[in-house]
Design a protein around this nucleic acid. Structure first.
Lengths: 248, 248
DNA sequence: CGAACGGTTGATCAAGATCAACGTCGGTGG
DNA sequence: CCACCGACGTTGATCTTGATCAACCGTTCG
């Protein structure tokens, strides 16, 4: 049986770790106060399904800590990840009743949830929220399109390198470092989840990770702890042009 | 040399064929009048590149008539389509200076362009525009995610069937018919463009189209004119569950 | 301890890529 | 008028990448 998270979170938005990146990033104190009235926290453990595709959704919200995946599954069991949710990412689609994808917690996870109806109502008259959500959605769309190139045209090796560089870069921006030189991080995904991300089998993922290690593109400590000695080299293996998608 | 379009378009938004579906769908008469002051029409011929990836963009806009594609290209020439733009679809990303993708007119095309800076300024104080753009962006994100499943997990035959069903469905909603029973339409894409859409080679596209024809899933008159005798059958071949993605 | 889970590695197979030839249609210029 | 060319499409033969099937390892957890 799931044991309740012992950890206690401050309800105070001022202390919120994702305050400056989430949907509420642009909100004024009075707007935060209003959001506060319709918000609540929920904890999930690793492996738990947060939302089932097709379910009626009565909340939207932000990932506060932990990692979740958005996945689509065909009747015969083939599954494709279509979103990777990190802290500050938004869950749920205002204006739609039913969830379109499964949302699964990959690690232990905390969400800041807003009751859906009041949130939608508030969004309608609070440009600060609507604007921020638009911005975040446009970013997600860009990420999805980058991902489509990976899925449609890259080789298995390039796919793995692409995924590693994406995780490395996200990690760097989270720690507010530039993405260059040596980088170290932990893989937040199992080999199977990586396969579902990249449209591969887990065997192919395992082989290509080993190959990148053998060729010195990455170093591994255990199965998950990755060191990238030369980020440019990794980008090269990913087939990305060197600028790495820096957009004005 | 490109010959100028002889056709003349009414500047009048009241007669605009995409009025009810575009970014301006929710605008009041006074807002339309303001948009009118920053708008202009541009025509492109089939094959013409509208925007090059990396270019500075000085406008955003809506496709009024015709079809365009968003594509990404790797240094070695591999290309992946990441968006298919039909009438009423929006082009450009407010808040970003440089284009992230190539935009190419697949057919002769007319765009209703807005000068970027004034449009962004106006969006900041016109919720009707921002809200509609958010809604359209969320729809595009959903489409991109559906597409990711196609790219990552479907077989070549399923990919072709998926593309045909998407085009058939879009066509049906444009003509305001329900997507069922017999459907007839023209393919707006060459075999090569279909391949770039689906992450296949043009040879595989050709073979699978022939196979679907041989198996009676579709009928062809010429290379482009398609008849789908049984839409359910097509959905089945696409591996989609029967509801066809009808979401509340 | 044994089972479950995550991961690695090997042998074999098949879907789709690649290379190549050919067909059709619609201009265009001699 | 016809010959030629280029764009688009089809089909065949062969090759390669990644899938599939299978065995096995190490860790963790009842």
């Amino acid at each position: 049986m799931p044991q309740e998270h012992a950890e206690v979170f401050s309800r105070n938005c001022g202390e919120c770790p994702i305050r400056h990146r989430a949907v509420c990033a642009r909100c004024e104190p009075d707007e935060l106060a209003e959001l506060d009235m319709i918000k609540y926290y929920r904890s999930f453990e690793a492996g738990q399904t947060i939302i089932w595709s097709g379910d009626q959704m009565d909340f939207v919200g932000s990932v506060v800590s932990g990692i979740a995946t958005l996945t689509q599954t065909m009747e015969d069991g083939r599954t494709q990840m279509v979103g990777l949710l990190l802290p500050s990412d938004f869950v749920g689609r205002p204006g739609r009743g039913a969830a379109a994808y499964d949302v699964v917690a990959t690690s232990d996870l905390v969400m800041c949830c807003f009751r859906k109806a009041p949130f939608e109502e508030m969004m309608g008259r609070t440009p600060h929220i609507a604007q921020r959500l638009l911005e975040m959605t446009l970013d997600e769309l860009d990420a999805a399109r980058e991902w489509m190139l990976v899925l449609g045209r890259k080789t298995a090796r390039e796919k793995i390198a692409s995924l590693l560089s994406i995780i490395a870069r996200r990690n760097a921006t989270l720690n507010m470092q530039g993405p260059k030189g040596q980088m170290v991080f932990d893989l937040p995904l199992t080999r199977e989840a990586m396969a579902d991300y990249l449209g591969l089998t887990l065997e192919t993922v395992s082989r290509q990770v080993s190959a990148l290690k053998r060729d010195g593109v990455i170093e591994l400590k255990g199965k998950r702890h990755v060191t990238v000695p030369d980020f440019e080299r990794l980008l090269d293996e990913a087939g990305d042009d060197s600028d790495g998608g820096m957009l004005a």
